[in-house]
Design a protein around this nucleic acid. Structure first.
Lengths: 157, 157
DNA sequence: CTTAGTACGACCTTATTGATCGGAGATCAT
DNA sequence: ATGATCTCCGATCAATAAGGTCGTACTAAG
């Protein structure tokens, strides 16, 4: 519980990989295709493809068609937050059902519910945490590259 | 998707209610039965019953059988953390699948996975948050319960 | 115009969650 | 004791979401 989905997991791995290739020392600027990532991390190819398409639709990466095609980060790693990634894949994140309910459908226990307010506070804390963490912060012990980032916080390297 | 389940929601509501009755001004020390809570918050009776049984099994509340029976908080509100409640209902909480995997089954992408460590940090932060918040903290502006259902009981105690 | 790649939508399978049912056991009033 | 209420507990069902697959169309490089 309080668990992120596999698709979101895959998205994080893929983005980490793309970032590592793109800004790494070996072949910087190279595009990365779906198959390469799928094989590297043992992710089902078709599923990963859909995840990447979703990320592209949300403008976190950009796709290039045809042979020699593949994906590139749309922005730099420190400009992509973990929250953005998760929300691209799983929709707006909310601890509780009544977090962002439209006018029409409000939950049955709303009138007497005393736990909504405190729960929303918890949610805010988590959202804040995820919004302050970027893809850059996940680029710790990558074998491909050694990023010298002064601003990477909270991740051991 | 980082969401807590309905059962966990129900658990929180129920505990908040029990605490409010038990330590409130109106009828302090009174036991609370399943039906009362279910009706107050429009929760399916049978489902709530199971939630309460689970909470009792984890020693967060204690049950009293027979007529005039019901539930009582096993400890005081500030000694019950939100983390304890959630874990009672949904098992050990972990952001990612590989959080607490047994020796045998480790995830397919483990060897090349670069996101595990940073994710565990996120998880720790959330766990810390939930461990530092108690039931007491959810008892903010509780309008004290005003139930005097005929089915409930007489005036004594 | 062929080939290697993404794009996209429909579909299937499985796991989790939410909810229900039927009794067994406990307790209290009478 | 006995019956009326309660909780307890296991089994089960239904709904929904998650994970994964398939087929085809579209695009660009050689």
């Amino acid at each position: 519980m309080l668990k992120i989905s596999k698709k979101a997991d895959y998205a994080l791995m893929a983005l980490q990989h793309i970032a590592a290739v793109q800004f790494g020392d070996v072949t910087p600027g190279r595009v990365v295709n779906t198959k390469e990532i799928a094989e590297e991390y043992n992710i089902p190819l078709e599923l990963l493809a859909k995840v990447l398409q979703t990320l592209a639709k949300h403008a976190l990466i950009e796709s290039h068609n045809g042979p020699k095609g593949g994906y590139l980060l749309a922005r730099r790693a420190h400009q992509i937050t973990i929250a953005q990634i998760l929300e691209s894949i799983e929709g707006p994140l909310g601890i509780t059902d009544c977090s962002h309910e439209k006018d029409g459908e409000l939950c049955m226990q709303r009138e007497n519910c005393h736990i909504r307010t405190p729960l929303l506070k918890v949610q805010d804390s988590i959202a804040q945490l995820l919004n302050n963490m970027t893809l850059q912060d996940m680029m710790g012990g990558t074998p491909l590259i050694t990023i010298q980032s002064p601003a990477a916080q909270g991740v051991e390297r």
